[in-house]
Design a protein around this nucleic acid. Structure first.
Lengths: 411, 411
DNA sequence: GGACTTAGTTCACCACTTAATACATAGCCA
DNA sequence: TGGCTATGTATTAAGTGGTGAACTAAGTCC
């Protein structure tokens, strides 16, 4: 079934997008290389790049001499063309970061949030955070292409963007409208934090180069970003990828979602610690979940119980990953999130082993399982890629048509 | 990241495809309606439909008078344009069916297969089956657009199409090459049987109209066809959707795949019967699995043990479906397969209930769960849609360029 | 039979891509 | 120094495709 919509100058947009994306991701390239890589004719490449150059989207980046012949002029996306902001609305605070187009970090601001913050407070923190990073980088609104926002819940994209985040008590919060009311006029892109972090791994981390991948995120909660053919899988109402609330042990432990036997109840930090606590018979030392989790990992080499809990965790995690492999048949699985990275550091071989036992042979043999490479807080970075992705997808045409950058909300 | 490939007269192909698909799926339509539905200008519609008409792909199908005004001429795809064959290579036999372009069944042939048939026998049965249906319908090779083949295993698409089907002992069988060697010159499309059956449900059954759906197939084995945005999800090596070997009860029952706790071990016919047998303490009457399964269902109203086994099955199935909902966020779940239909008939409300308990509220509320409507053996029908889908996707252009229809193997 | 309506077609025009060709640059060789 | 060639870039001409506007076709209603 052919996808809807006509096509007229979509051609030009598509080719602009193609060239722009190539330049963005594959560094400086000459027109000739672009022509070879994209299959477009040299004429078209010349034509389009000239246009992009006039619009200051791309600039020349030196030459490279050839053995006899006109030297090729390298082109690249101009990092100074515009800026993007990434916002991470987490369960404990709001982080706002400012980047140039090449995703160099220019400024960062963090604001704490109360437990279960009401949307108004979060919005307040976001708007002030944005003001601050713009001020600290000496940048004007007009130089900002857009703001990406990662939230700790599912996002219903549509005419009204609605955020459902049970862990912070948000139900159908119209985040974009609230931000508009608070005076934010920039293009906004809202997405689930797990998905933005996944996108960051895909663009700059362990997912680079893969077309089909699953980024598993394990922290207090457990989620996954599924990338198919280069784009994030969303499903019909963009709440796909809720791996954490997948049943892995039918009739098993209670999960905070209300169901039983969810993967999150076994491999989420809380679930792991609960098991440890039970086996141990007493509380785990440490201020918060992260400290306690660290204590568990640290205890493993000498404590049989700690080792056993971790081994069990590797088992559940391996089986959960096998499920992802069987269902999605990705070429790569990336384990991220603070708990995931910590577990992986210690248990990756065992996790791989268990996954191999539970997954079907053929898809398993096509998949590599590795750790995320972007550290713990790529949510904001990933969020900031949303406006960039939009720019690349649109071939940077919307900006020309309407330089005022009006209400383009959807991601 | 913009999808690769250039675009030149892809425009025309895309619009041909768009119009052709609309006509194919949404019955006879006037040019005017087509213009409205697709967003193409009236001029383009006229132009393209004239072309399609000349090529005999579409014909006029009567008029519909209007209150004052020129009557609109209805257009439709000409069923006689060409024929397609669908082949179901199952674990016990080969079924070959012949259809016209509108998927009216013209002939059917079935050949038994020995247990674990070697590929050569299967190929032999397929080729003779094809000869027979062509003969019985009095049709020449040249009138056949292509042959779709559903196989009981995963299919590795690529330059060489390889079939991995452990249940019949096939490992990396180059089915297309074998058929070519056996003298089949028609375009061939090979896919997993669960996927072809899923496609049949999407086109003509309970999946009609949905853009995101999962067709769950429950028989001896358990599989699923995941449809995203109208196309079957394949993953990186097209073995996605192996729902049956997803772990649902960590450390639980042994599965024939070698792992433990697979969904198939609980809701596949064999697994259900094994549980029944265990609870009952003696064998279940019946010749084969299907008869035994029927006996179980039939016993349920009076036997507590049978009822309990079925209720448990509904539980596992509901949880398994919840996993699909959480991961894929479809708008529809269709339960098919002989065991699935039988179970659903009896237990659908309970299955829905359990799924609701295990799935997250929001995605669950967006999903309807229903039974397949195509009976038990839609594999061949679905396989036959593969060449049709290709025709529609290509806008029927490949045929014009090279009327000889050479070696286009991939689906 | 004339006014009005709706459906479908024709045509001039514009946008886009490509192939062919012209132009530019640098090293090599005489 | 002046060709010559290899390489890379720009430009032009030709072809294709989509669209809007004018136009034709085929009806109804008064």
């Amino acid at each position: 079934m052919a996808s809807k919509r006509t096509t007229v100058r979509d051609l030009r947009r598509h080719n602009r997008s193609l060239l722009l994306s190539k330049l963005y991701f594959d560094g400086p390239l000459s027109r000739h290389e672009l022509s070879q890589l994209t299959g477009l004719s040299a004429a078209t490449v010349s034509n389009v790049t000239a246009e992009l150059g006039e619009e200051r989207l791309i600039t020349e980046a030196g030459q490279v001499e050839s053995d006899g012949g006109r030297p090729r002029v390298l082109l690249r996306v101009d990092p100074a063309y515009g800026h993007v902001a990434g916002v991470d609305i987490g369960e404990t605070g709001v982080k706002v970061e400012l980047f140039d187009l090449a995703m160099n970090r220019l400024a960062t601001v963090e604001h704490p949030l109360p437990k279960a913050p009401d949307p108004a407070t979060a919005v307040e923190q976001v708007t002030s955070g944005l003001r601050e990073v713009f001020a600290s980088a000496g940048i004007d609104d007009s130089a900002v292409l857009g703001v990406g926002i990662g939230v700790p819940g599912t996002v219903e994209q549509g005419a009204r963007v609605l955020v459902h985040a049970p862990t912070v008590g948000w139900d159908a919060v119209p985040l974009v409208s609230l931000l508009r009311d608070a005076g934010v006029r920039l293009p906004l892109f809202v997405d689930n934090g797990a998905k933005t972090q996944g996108q960051a791994e895909m663009w700059f981390g362990a997912g680079r180069g893969a077309r089909h991948a699953v980024i598993a995120l394990i922290g207090s909660g457990v989620g996954a970003a599924v990338v198919t053919d280069g784009t994030t899988y969303r499903g019909s109402t963009s709440s796909a990828g809720e791996w954490g609330h997948t049943t892995i042990a039918y009739g098993g432990n209670d999960c905070r979602c209300g169901a039983r036997g969810c993967l999150e109840a076994y491999i989420g930090a809380g679930g792991v610690l609960a098991r440890y606590r039970r086996v141990r018979g007493k509380d785990v030392p440490g201020e918060d979940e992260q400290a306690q989790f660290a204590a568990l990992l640290e205890a493993a080499p000498r404590s049989k119980t700690a080792a056993r809990v971790l081994d069990e965790t590797a088992g559940y995690l391996g089986a959960g990953i096998a499920n992802l492999i069987n269902l999605f048949n990705p070429e790569r699985i990336v384990i991220g999130g603070w708990a995931g990275l910590a577990l992986g550091e210690l248990l990756l071989p065992r996790i791989r082993e268990v996954a191999g036992e539970h997954a079907l042979r053929h898809p398993f043999s096509q998949t590599s399982i590795q750790l995320g490479s972007l550290g713990l807080d790529a949510v904001a970075t990933g969020a900031a890629t949303l406006p960039v992705a939009d720019l690349l997808d649109q071939g940077a045409t919307s900006r020309i048509v309407k330089p005022g950058a009006p209400d383009s909300d959807a991601a």
